[in-house]
Computed example of a mutant assay.
Amino acid sequence: MIDLFYAPTPNGWKISIFLEEAGLPYAVRPVNIGRGEQFAPDFLAISPNNRIPAIVDNAPAGGGPPVSVFESGAILLYLAEKTGRFLPVDLRGRTATLEWLMWQMGGLG
């Protein structure tokens, strides 16, 4: 199960769309950024840059303790690698996908 710390923003939507498309089980943990909940110590332990989205993977590949990931691009890459989906393994396909991933982080908002 993945906990998705979420607010209805473009970056929050990116992660929820990926989770749905990949068929991963997840629970939405709303973060009310209008009330400043992103500055709460518990949330900062997961997302030290005080931004959503962030995830906690309670069943990471290989086992062990939960893994937290922040920043939309890092989350998308983490989930792609976890599921083996949406990230080609061939050089050209992987390169093109990573180019678009980087673009969405800096160019899409």
Rank of each mutant, 00 (worst) to 15 (best):
F70Q: 06
V89L: 10
L91S: 10
D57W: 04
F86G: 04
R29L: 05
D42M: 07
I52Y: 07
F39M: 15
V28T: 04
L76G: 08
I17G: 08
L87F: 09
R35V: 06
E21Y: 12
M102N: 13
G109S: 00
G62H: 10
F5L: 15
P30S: 05
P8S: 13
L87R: 13
A59E: 14
L76K: 12
Q38H: 05
L19D: 00
A96Y: 07
D42K: 03
P48M: 00
L19S: 00
N58P: 04
P60I: 11
S68H: 14
D3P: 00
P30N: 07
F70L: 07
I2M: 07
A45Y: 11
E21N: 10
P30K: 03
P25Q: 02
K14A: 06
L76D: 09
I46R: 12
T9D: 05
E81Q: 14
A7F: 12
L108C: 09
I15W: 02
G23D: 11
A61D: 07
F39D: 04
I55T: 10
G93H: 11
S68L: 11
G64F: 05
P25W: 03
A45E: 11
I46Y: 09
R29Y: 06
P66G: 03
I46E: 06
A59G: 12
G36N: 08
